[in-house]
Amino acid sequence: MTASPPSQTRRATIAGGLITSLLVAGGAEARPAGDDPSRGITGGPDDWAFLVGRWNVRHHRLKERLVGSTEWQDFNGTCENWPLMGGLGNVDDNLLELPAGTYRGVGVRAFDAETRQWSIWWIDSRIANIDPPVRGGFKDGTGVFIGSDTHKGTPVTVRFRWSELTGDTAKWDQAFSTDGGKTWETNWRMEFTRAKG
Rank of each mutant, 00 (worst) to 15 (best):
P6V: 05
T166D: 14
R11N: 05
I123T: 01
E191T: 11
D112L: 14
V24H: 00
D35P: 09
V156C: 13
D112Y: 09
E71M: 06
M1I: 00
E64I: 12
L18A: 08
G27T: 11
T193P: 05
P45G: 12
H60F: 03
G153M: 15
R126C: 03
R159C: 14
H59F: 10
F192C: 09
D74M: 02
D35T: 08
R39G: 07
F176A: 13
N187A: 07
L165N: 14
L96M: 10
P83A: 13
R135K: 04
T169C: 05
D46C: 02
L95V: 11
I123C: 04
A170F: 13
A25Y: 04
E64W: 09
Q8W: 05
K139P: 00
C79N: 15
D47L: 03
T9A: 11
E114A: 11
S21V: 00
G180R: 06
L23V: 00
V57C: 12
V52P: 02
P37E: 07
L95G: 06
L84E: 07
G77C: 03
V52I: 11
W82I: 13
N90S: 15
T183A: 02
T70C: 07
R189E: 15
T142L: 01
T20R: 03
N81D: 02
P132Y: 10
G143E: 13
D149I: 09
D74F: 04
W184A: 10
S125N: 00
G87P: 12
G43S: 04
Y103L: 05
R189G: 11
P37K: 06
F50M: 03
K182W: 08
M190S: 06
